[in-house]
Amino acid sequence: MEAFLASTLVVAVAEIGDKTMLLAVLLACRFRAPGAIIAGILLATLANHGLAALAGAEVAGLLDGWWFRLAVALGFLAMALWTLVPDRLDDDGDARPSRFGPFLTTLVSFFIVEIGDKTQVATVALGAQYHAVLTVAAGTTLGMMIANVPAVLLGERAVRIVPLGLVRIVAAAIFAVLGAVALAMLLR
């Protein structure tokens, strides 16, 4: 249960103001098809975070030693700093709707944009820390949905309502606490 709740909380907070949340807002404004967009986000996140949690658990199983645990702890601390840097989407100037429709456009774009994103990196680290692929993937996916469903439903109003600077600070604090706890466990 700890792995699920930690995974949900970390990703839900870290995702607010993230580039994939901004992508959700963009897609919602462009397509005005919330059901298809939400379904695309869900499936893309399940696939991406499932692979990320599996990679984290497998790498941790291969490298389960003091140095690897130190790297995971330092990774959480690095994510705390990374979270403080605001994300933005590059505007390509193309306002035309995709020929693939809202579901497929969302599915593919979310999967690709999430590669290397801080929430994917966090999922790898959580998979390495907890060795519970399904639990971590389910938790991080729920966290993504908690952050992105309101963004889809509210569209651009969502980014005006939520104080993104404060959210980034809270997310950074959560990552820092996870890193500090991991370091404390390592040093005892």
Rank of each mutant, 00 (worst) to 15 (best):
T119C: 08
A47Q: 06
L63G: 04
A24K: 08
L43Q: 02
D64H: 11
A28G: 13
D64F: 14
D117S: 10
A3V: 12
A172T: 07
A39G: 09
A53Y: 06
T106R: 01
A147C: 05
G143K: 11
G179K: 03
L81N: 13
A147H: 02
A137W: 02
G93R: 00
G127H: 00
A184Q: 09
T105R: 10
K118C: 03
G35Q: 04
P150T: 07
V181L: 14
A137Y: 02
L51V: 08
L84S: 10
A128Q: 05
R96F: 14
F68I: 05
L77Q: 09
R69H: 10
G40P: 11
P150C: 00
L46N: 00
A53S: 10
A53L: 01
R88D: 01
D64C: 05
A53I: 09
T140K: 00
L77C: 05
L51E: 05
L9A: 11
A71R: 02
D92L: 12
K19R: 10
D117M: 08
T20S: 05
M145Q: 04
E2W: 14
L104E: 10
G17H: 04
A128V: 00
E58Y: 15
T83N: 04
A122Y: 02
A44E: 03
L5M: 02
V159W: 08
A55H: 04
D92S: 12
V108C: 15
G127A: 05
M185H: 11
V159T: 14
V72C: 14
D64E: 02
V25H: 01
V167D: 04
D18A: 09
D18S: 14
I115N: 13
P86T: 03
F4V: 10
F68D: 09
A24M: 01
T119H: 10
V136M: 03
A173P: 13
G93F: 02
L51R: 07
G61E: 13
G127V: 14
L164Y: 06
V10L: 08
V121G: 04
D87I: 01
F76A: 03
V13E: 00
T105E: 11
C29G: 15
L154D: 09
A172Y: 11
T140W: 01
L166H: 08
L183M: 00
F175H: 05
P97N: 14
A137L: 02
I41R: 03
V25A: 00
Y130N: 02
G143T: 01
L134E: 06
D94A: 06
E15K: 07
V170I: 15
V170G: 07
R157M: 13
R32N: 12
G61N: 08
D18F: 14
W82T: 15
F175R: 07
K19N: 11
F4P: 02
A182G: 04
S109Q: 02
A60M: 09
T123P: 13
G101E: 07
V177I: 15
L186K: 07
C29Y: 12
L107F: 14
G35L: 15
V85R: 09
G116K: 06
A12L: 09
V167T: 01
L51H: 10
A151I: 05
E114A: 10
T140A: 09
G56Q: 01
L84K: 10
T140R: 00
P102L: 08
D94L: 11
E58M: 15
L74C: 05
V162H: 06
